Structures are given as structure tokens and as C-alpha cells.
Amino acid sequence: MRFDKKQLLLYAVTDRSWLKDRTLSMEVEEALKGGVTFLQLREKELGENRFLEESLKIKALCRNYNVPFIINDNVKLALACGADGVHVGQSDMKASDVRDLIGQDMILGVSVQTVEQAVDAEDNGADYLGVGTVFVTATKADADFVSYETLKSICHAVSIPVVAIGGINEENIMELTGSGIAGVALVSAIFASKSIKAKSKRMLQLSERVVKS
């Protein structure tokens, strides 16, 4: 699946930490209704069977809203469920190896923190990059911090689109203006919200302003 970089404007990464009495599918659909343009299913605790079941449900929702559906880390499961793509980190499988497994039609995203990593990821088949963490975040407390200057340098060093991730919220998103990003990836800013649909709509508006500037 090829995609338009405009689809990276509001990239949602799931987290079941805030589900309470709701299902993940319910929360994801609220986000999609609010304007999420790209969705990554991230599951660290589910067994393979549950993960596959969940991925099929979320994939069906994304299809209904014409939003690319990405699996985090698990290449085997991404292939099994027919996801649009997979996203891997620096400690996961090499981008070139992932590309060999998924072929040319699936989307490949790679997390990077440096210009060197970014260029290497592009050279080895990445379609887009996730750069972070750009702000302090409780979601990934051990994540490396990436400065605004480095984020901007990465955007200028590669020809593929870049998404900023890590601690981005309504209060700080405008600080990313002028960096060259194609969009923002959000976790708690969307899924910890009392109104996921309304917050998604608001963050999409802000992301559009950042990207246009």
C-alpha cells in the first residue's frame, strides 16, 4: 500500500492503559471519527492469538475510514493479519530485513533518533520515520530525548516524511513549527482524553498548522 504523506498528519498509537470499561475498538473508532489519519496498533502484553484477534478488529475499522493500519514491531503478525504496514525500532529487526520479509507493497516505518540512523533507515527501505522522543513523556520513560535541532536536521537529511513522537500535547505541539515534519504521533494526548473524538479533532487542526508553517 502506497500512501500520501498527508496521511501522517495525525498518527495515533494505541495504548490500552486508559480503557477502563471501554474496548480498544471503541476508543479507536472515536479517534477515527475525530480525524486520525494513520493508526498504529501497539501491544506489549497480549499473547499472539489475542493480538491477532485485536488486529483484525482494528484493521476493519481503519478500512472503513480509509486510514492506513500499522502494526508495531511484530512483522509476523503484520503479515498474518494483512496490515498495511509495520513499524520497527532501532532495537528490533533491521529495516532491510523487514523490507525483504514484507515486500515492496507494505508500508515500513522506522524509529530513529539521529541523522545517521535516519539516512540508514531510508537507504534500507523505510517509507517514513518516527523521530523522538521530542518532549518528556510518561509513555516511554526510558526513551532518548531528541532536540528540535536534531529533528529539523533529520527532516532535511531525508526525502521520506518524518513524524515527531513523544510527549506531544495541545500545550507544546506548536513548538514543533518549522521543523519540517509531516505530522505528529500521539498516544496519551488522544487515548487518555475524556473525549477522544474531540481531542483528535483539535490535535488534527493543530498538526495542520504546524506542518503548513
Rank of each mutant, 00 (worst) to 15 (best):
E27N: 14
L186S: 04
L8I: 07
L10A: 05
V110W: 03
L19M: 11
E48D: 13
D73E: 12
I58Y: 09
Q104F: 02
I107K: 02
E48H: 06
T23F: 03
R99I: 09
A182S: 15
V187R: 01
Y65H: 12
H87A: 00
R209T: 11
T150G: 05
K140Y: 01
E48L: 12
G180V: 11
G85N: 05
E170R: 15
V162F: 06
K44H: 05
L9S: 12
V158G: 00
V131W: 06
K59A: 14
D4T: 11
S91F: 07
S17F: 09
L79M: 13
T150R: 14
P161N: 10
A118P: 08
N74K: 15
V131K: 04
C155I: 13
V115Q: 03
S188P: 00
I196D: 05
L77E: 10
T114G: 10
M174H: 14
L24A: 08
D92P: 06
D120M: 12
D73Q: 08
V131E: 04
D105L: 06
G89R: 02
T37D: 10
M106Q: 13
M26V: 09
G130L: 01
S193K: 03
L151A: 12
M106P: 04
G183Q: 08
V13S: 02
L108C: 04
L10T: 08
I70M: 05
T177G: 00
Q40P: 07
